[in-house]
Design a protein around this nucleic acid. Structure first.
Lengths: 157, 157
DNA sequence: AAGGCTAAGTCTACTTGACAGACTTAGCAA
DNA sequence: TTGCTAAGTCTGTCAAGTAGACTTAGCCTT
């Protein structure tokens, strides 16, 4: 099979665009902790294990790109500091994190089972990602998906 | 909010484990092309833009980790070569790719719209990722999800 | 059999990024 | 005024990524 996609320009792919923002080594771990409710530099540093400078750069980058925003806070008897909170743009990356975690649980998990499970806040039931189509079908595999050129597709010269 | 997760060991996180396999710079682009049906070294190289040696290393790594497998083929009048095909383990990463693409389409897309759309092979309708819970609710946001310690959770010393 | 072509790499020199560990700064506290 | 802590920055070192030239194996033509 030689895909029709070979005729289209891979440079415009939004996966590459997304990766240019979140594809750096520590970024996902920072986001993971952000979703876990970690907001402070030091907690981040301890939990991700990222070198402080790298963490500093990544946080700044994520703030720059609008995935996190800085909120000043002040503990009693302390100077004012900043904490980092997810914006909508950041929160919208949640499915990526969930997908990675699901895959990791399936293929890289220790025998004892996953260390973290996601539950529905309202009913407590397990949360999962599903591939569905607009007609309401649930797809079981990537094999049920056909990629097609979208409105922004551009042929290669 | 200081999350209970601070008491648990981040090192065992399966996101990190997943990233240690697929978190390198070019890996997702290689997988993207694999899902697009690209199987041959040269097509991969042209479409991802990865330097040949890097591509060579990534493909070898992905084969090593069992996400791709090599299948020999032979074009008429050519010597035998290998093509790279996704295994089940590789195919199971599809949700990650879809999630990245969806996010990229929303936040990094050019005005003209997404270059690629995913459709259900059987009915042709748009394919999307949904967060659902085991009770059948569809969740609209990461805010509706509560992470909890799973069976494999381990407290930090 | 000599020369040429192509796929799939390897090799080399250069550049960028990651890293540990020391240093800096601002505010509070004794 | 000295010390302490959070949240960084600075510095020198070392690993990884990169472009582009080079290599190897098989096949084809003459």
């Amino acid at each position: 099979m030689r895909s029709w996609l070979l005729d289209y320009d891979p440079d415009q792919c939004n996966i590459a665009a997304a990766l240019s923002i979140v594809g750096e080594k520590w970024t996902f771990l920072v986001l993971r902790e952000a979703f876990n409710g970690v907001r402070r530099f030091d907690d981040m540093q301890r939990r991700t294990g990222a070198p402080r400078q790298v963490l500093s750069n990544r946080l700044a980058r994520l703030v720059d790109e609008g995935l996190l925003h800085k909120v000043p806070y002040r503990e009693p008897g302390q100077r004012p500091r900043s904490e980092y909170r997810l914006t909508e743009k950041g929160i919208d990356l949640f499915p990526v994190i969930v997908a990675l975690m699901t895959w990791g649980d399936k293929y890289a998990s220790e025998a004892s089972g996953p260390p973290v499970v996601l539950t529905h806040r309202d009913c407590g039931a397990h949360v999962e990602l599903e591939l569905t189509c607009a007609d309401g079908h649930v797809l079981n595999s990537a094999r049920d998906v056909t990629p097609k050129p979208g409105p922004g597709a551009r042929r290669v010269a």
